[in-house]
Design a protein around this nucleic acid. Structure first.
Lengths: 347, 347
DNA sequence: GTGAAAGCGCTAACAC
DNA sequence: GTGTTAGCGCTTTCAC
């Protein structure tokens, strides 16, 4: 508990106490070789005794590097983003960074300027933009070339001039829908997320292409628009069934909406599994404990965060080295998890 | 997008460009009154043109204040902690603070020293310790008097010499159990969390006292120890039922474990609601969409976080004013949410 | 090996 | 009103 001293100890006090100059202390705390062993030891003793803690702060000012990453996140009350943040923190911490966190509540914020400004004025070494791409909330990205530090974008349409880390939503939706088809479904409905979300559009495209490629129906009346909530999934299935009583499969674009579908199906007397096969997206931890347990597409949000930090770290190092880092895209592959809810009685 | 300039602009460049001293620029950016209107305008123009962004960093160094709060959190893959963090961020942002975030994975960490040291060396104005009280992971708190900045503890046993913000778990458990009793339950089992968690012990105590006060059984064989997961809730109910086939009520100490109980009950052929009444704790967003929808005890984790920041802010102001702030405890009251799962057929 | 001087970007205190 | 000086805590450069 030696660090916990009432007043901040400075390098000067240590120097005085040890009878050396501040430079020597600096050399010791930075593990420079050119210090006499005896001196080094003496200084170290004083440091321990006084509980001296070098100020990263002052150090950053002169070195132009803070070992801090700015993270702009969104909607921590959802499971996915929380995991992503956890992943970011974990990797960052391993690489020796701390996190400066900012959350935004409306993803269409126009405070982007102010936000970035605040982070930059705290001298972050790099930025992670962990806000979903919604509507035109990416318009500003074109100008981000001008940022003095590298920035990595999470969950947006990959583009060659940016660092982007994303899950392959299209491919995940393809897997989910093909699985339903393989189960024998003839009419597969879709509960989408809000279509101004890039992720939602990708998943919808996957659903459509999977059906189109085998000649199954995929018209708009098979699509119910949800808002990621269980309530919207429930309502969406009601609408779907009203128009298509023959429906025997549903791909819900997240697990919460799938939960809503399960609830609606029960209320309307459709057996799941058996008469109706349901697949979700996310693999949220409770999916395995629903009744029936939910088949879904797992995306590893923790890994997403970690990758973002690794990529950013490399970019930061490159910048520190004086070069301009080459943008890079990482597309993580999701995984189909088959449980009970997607089983269909063959007819 | 004016802030996004390639190289950081300093106060000196602005001063030169505007033909004034750095001091005058400083006065303008700090909105000091003693600047001639004409000068002020000229400076502001230059600031806008150059996209100058003052460095909080350098400012903090000289002012001894960073408008940054250090947050040490835990287990962001759970819903509660995520909400708390969201609440912290929101309030902090409103009060003009940024967050420096650190997550720990084992709550019994002995890296407390290092962690606090790192935060302090980044000159945080105050700290929020948002890690549950587990085992003796609070032993170090006795020494925290020596910290140079105020620290607020979340979710731990209140004590008069500390800032503590917590939910009244005892009272919540009391409400849950009394509700089950009021429904007509005669044998009420308990699925606890790990008992080295303070919260788990509080909830257990509430359960016990509620039963004891009306003369209903509350022996240890009615208690199954879980670990907050749905799996442990399911296994716990199996054990409970084996020993007490007459069981007609269960209080699960969180909603996940309650979900496990629902699953086990279904498997074992106990009707919920009807034969078995179940109440959870947390009111996690999907609780209303389970089948049956889950009665539970709502705790407002977002508010918990916000309160922590407000209390910390006051303490910081007091410290800045040169006084020692008086510790304070805030105990938030949870709320019983009655849904379907706790109904019991009267006999 | 070690120290003195200069400076990172800013503001407090004091001059004028 | 505005500029000058000094200094926050540290590191870098260059003496010795």
């Amino acid at each position: 508990m030696t660090v916990l001293t009432k007043r901040r100890v400075t390098i000067r006090q240590v120097a005085e106490e040890a009878g050396v100059s501040t430079q020597t202390v600096s050399r010791v705390i930075n593990n420079r070789p050119d210090v006499a062993p005896a001196t080094r030891q003496r200084v170290q003793e004083v440091i321990a005794r006084l509980g001296y803690q070098p100020s990263y702060f002052a150090r950053s000012l002169v070195q132009g590097r803070s070992f801090t990453i700015g993270v702009v996140g969104y909607g921590l009350d959802y499971f996915g983003p929380s995991c992503t943040l956890a992943g970011i923190e974990r990797e960052a911490s391993q690489l020796g960074y701390r996190l400066l966190l900012s959350l935004i509540r409306q993803p269409e914020t126009n405070r982007v300027d102010q936000l970035l400004g605040e982070m930059l004025s705290r001298h972050v070494d790099g930025l992670i933009w962990a806000v979903p791409e919604i509507g035109d909330n990416r318009a500003w990205v074109d100008q981000a070339h001008e940022l003095p530090v590298p920035i990595v974008f999470l969950t947006m349409e990959p583009r060659p001039d940016r660092f982007v880390i994303a899950v392959d939503n299209y491919s995940g939706a393809l897997m989910a829908t093909r699985h339903l088809i393989a189960q024998g479904c003839k009419t597969v409905g879709l509960i989408t997320g809000p279509l101004d979300w890039w992720e939602a559009r990708q998943r919808q495209a996957g659903w459509r292409d999977a059906l189109a490629s085998v000649g199954l129906p995929h018209e708009d009346s098979l699509i119910a628009k949800g808002n990621w909530s269980a309530a919207s999934g429930e309502a969406g299935f009601d609408r779907l069934l009203a128009q298509h009583p023959e429906i025997d499969g549903v791909f819900a674009c997240n697990d919460q909406m799938a939960l809503g579908v399960l609830r609606a199906a029960r209320r309307l007397g459709r057996r799941v599994p058996g008469e109706l096969a349901v697949v979700g997206f996310d693999d949220w931890p409770e999916a395995a404990y629903l009744y029936p347990s939910l088949s879904t597409v797992r995306q590893d949000m923790v890994e997403l965060g970690r990758r973002a930090v690794r990529v950013l770290d490399q970019a930061i190092e490159t910048v520190q080295g004086g070069t301009v880092p080459a943008p890079k895209t990482v597309l993580l592959q999701p995984e189909l998890i088959v449980r009970e809810s997607s089983f269909l009685d063959k007819r």
